[in-house]
Computed example of a mutant assay.
Amino acid sequence: MVKEQGRKLVAQNKKARHDYHIEDTYEAGMVLMGTEVKSLRAGRASLVDGFAEVHDGEVWLHGVHIPEYTQGTWTNHAARRKRKLLLNRHEIDKIESRVNERGLTLVPLSLYFKDGRAKVELGLAKGKKTWDKRHALAERQANREKEQEIGRRLKGIR
């Protein structure tokens, strides 16, 4: 059997980067059942309501929706069950201290396969205020207009 190489994106939480300031990111493995892996390989997952928490020295992922596998039998998994994440002890301790002391939260940013293994990218995040979101949108729009103007001038238009 040929071993899988590279990275295959399954799901991405684009809204998380809009709603939160991402301070740090971590890559974690996931403890999954067989039908969950088959469902993920079919490209079906949603990270919209997901979050992670540290409980008793372990990191758990809550609210991530991996739908039931269509060809699964009675051994199928629950779609929104909590899943254990695999991180180093040093990383878990670092995350736990930052979440407790600064009021940050762990948000899943993307779900992917890396060399055949399911991984989730977690972001240590702080919530944005409404004015922060508006400011970020205005800044992005201004940068886009600036780049367009530079492109026009290089082409000799206007």
Rank of each mutant, 00 (worst) to 15 (best):
G63K: 11
L85M: 15
A11G: 08
I157S: 00
V107T: 06
Q71I: 06
P108I: 05
D132M: 14
V99N: 00
G29C: 14
H18S: 06
A138L: 10
E27T: 02
M33A: 02
K155H: 03
T130P: 00
K82P: 13
S110G: 01
M30F: 12
L122R: 04
G123H: 05
R7S: 05
Q12F: 10
L47C: 02
G103D: 04
M30T: 13
L106K: 04
K146N: 09
E27A: 08
N76M: 03
A136Q: 15
H21N: 05
R89H: 07
T35A: 14
H77A: 08
V107G: 00
V64F: 02
G116S: 05
V2F: 07
Y112W: 01
I157C: 00
E4T: 12
L32H: 02
L124Q: 03
Y112T: 02
L124D: 01
A11E: 01
E23P: 00
L111K: 06
E101P: 00
K155P: 01
R7D: 13
G57Q: 11
K84Y: 10
F51C: 04
H135D: 14
A28F: 05
L85V: 12
R7A: 03
E96V: 04
K14A: 05
G151W: 10
E4G: 10
K94V: 10
M1A: 13
N100G: 11
H21P: 00
P67Y: 06
V48D: 02
D93G: 15
K146H: 13
R98H: 05
A136G: 07
R83K: 15
V2M: 11
H90N: 13
I66W: 07
L9A: 08
R44C: 09
K129N: 07
W74Y: 14
R140K: 14
K84A: 15
L61T: 13
L86K: 13
A125K: 06
V2A: 13
E27P: 01
A52P: 06
V37R: 00
F113M: 05
R153T: 04
A142Q: 01
L122I: 04
D49I: 08
L154W: 09
H135V: 15
N76L: 06
T35R: 12
S39I: 07
V107K: 00
Y69S: 09
P67F: 05
E53S: 10
G72N: 06
A52Y: 03
D115G: 05
V37T: 12
L111F: 00
L124G: 02
I92A: 10
R17G: 02
L111V: 04
R153F: 04
E121L: 03
L109T: 01
A16N: 00
G43M: 02
A28G: 15
V37K: 07
T75Q: 15
K119I: 12
E58Y: 13
E145T: 01
A138F: 04
Y69K: 02
K94G: 12
I157T: 02
A78F: 12
D49Y: 09
M33D: 10
H55S: 14
L85G: 14
D19N: 02
D115H: 12
R144G: 00
V10R: 08
S46H: 09
A42F: 06
D24S: 05
A52K: 11
Y26K: 06
H62R: 09
N76F: 04
S39V: 07
R98P: 01
G72H: 09
R81S: 14
K82A: 07
